[in-house]
Design a protein around this nucleic acid. Structure first.
Ligand SMILES: [Zn+2]
Ligand SMILES: [Zn+2]
Ligand SMILES: [Zn+2]
Ligand SMILES: [Zn+2]
Ligand SMILES: [Zn+2]
Ligand SMILES: [Zn+2]
Length: 242
DNA sequence: GAGTTTGAAACT
DNA sequence: CAGTTTCAAACTC
């Protein structure tokens, strides 16, 4: 089982995907028709929130569709690798139109897709488990081939079980699922990514923005991956970057 | 890194 | 609403 130290170590990873699913977009949600000052300021990092913007790689959406994770999360592209990006201050007009159109299709488009667990504060032991059980994907997934045990599945990606909202086929992402259990208790190696993702998702979901003094263990490793493996040097996963 | 798979989002 | 297409990420090798 993961000890507290592992949790702390993982905090830095700060899963973007999970964040995108959960966070309320700041710029977009301003439902008020005309706030006197429509501040054109890019992703303000509200103090405390580490601006670990994961970069998108959009090429054909101009980052003005929900396909773009940046746009979907209500943030401007910043440091992304996108092509023809309009999700920036220089294209504020187009961006606003896109937001409007998106909201017209789905008024909840920029709201969290995951209904947070009713109550935080669990006993330390299985808080990950609790979060995992209680949260629900508002729309549910519609997976057909992933068994909802890969990150293709939004439920799995958010580290939550599939719910009655889901219309997935051959779902294995439910409590008591052997396959799912195998991911966490399996023979080590291959499932490392999932363990790490799950652990991290649980972390960000549980304490992500609730303010938990960060204890950076290490900055960027190998320049890229901001991952920090929970098993550190003892990891058996061949792809582990540390 | 290139190529494939996947399912949400978009479109018809 | 259902079927299809588009899209970018997740995944595989
Ligand atoms: Zn983008
Ligand atoms: Zn972006
Ligand atoms: Zn962009
Ligand atoms: Zn699913
Ligand atoms: Zn699901
Ligand atoms: Zn499922």
């Amino acid at each position: 089982m993961l000890d507290h130290q592992s949790f702390v170590a993982l905090e830095e990873q700060n899963s973007w995907s999970t964040r995108a699913l959960e966070c309320w977009s700041t710029e977009v949600l301003e439902q008020k028709p005309e706030s006197p000052k429509a501040k054109p300021r890019p992703n303000e990092l509200k103090d405390g929130t580490p601006k670990k913007q994961k970069q998108c790689n959009c090429k054909h959406s101009r980052c003005l569709k929900l396909y773009c994770e940046c746009f979907a999360s209500g943030t401007y592209c910043d440091g992304c690798n996108c092509v023809n990006c309009y999700n920036n201050v220089d294209n504020e007009a187009a961006r606003r139109d896109a937001i409007e159109a998106t909201l017209e299709r789905n008024p909840n488009a920029f709201r969290p897709k995951i209904a947070s667990s009713p109550h935080g504060a669990r006993d330390s032991r299985e808080e990950a488990g609790e979060v995992l059980m209680l949260a629900k994907h508002n729309k549910g997934c519609h997976c057909k081939k992933s068994g909802c045990l890969k990150k293709y599945c939004e439920c799995f990606q958010a580290n939550i079980l599939c719910s009655e909202n889901c219309k997935c086929m051959d779902c294995k992402n439910f409590e008591g699922s052997e396959e799912r259990q195998a991911l966490f208790h399996g023979d080590h190696a291959n499932n490392m990514a999932y363990i790490q993702q799950a652990a991290n998702a649980a972390i960000t979901g549980a304490i992500g923005s609730s303010g938990y003094a960060s204890t950076p263990v290490s900055k960027k490793r190998k320049g890229k991956a901001s991952y920090l493996c929970i098993f550190l040097d003892n990891c058996l996963w061949r792809n582990c970057v540390g």
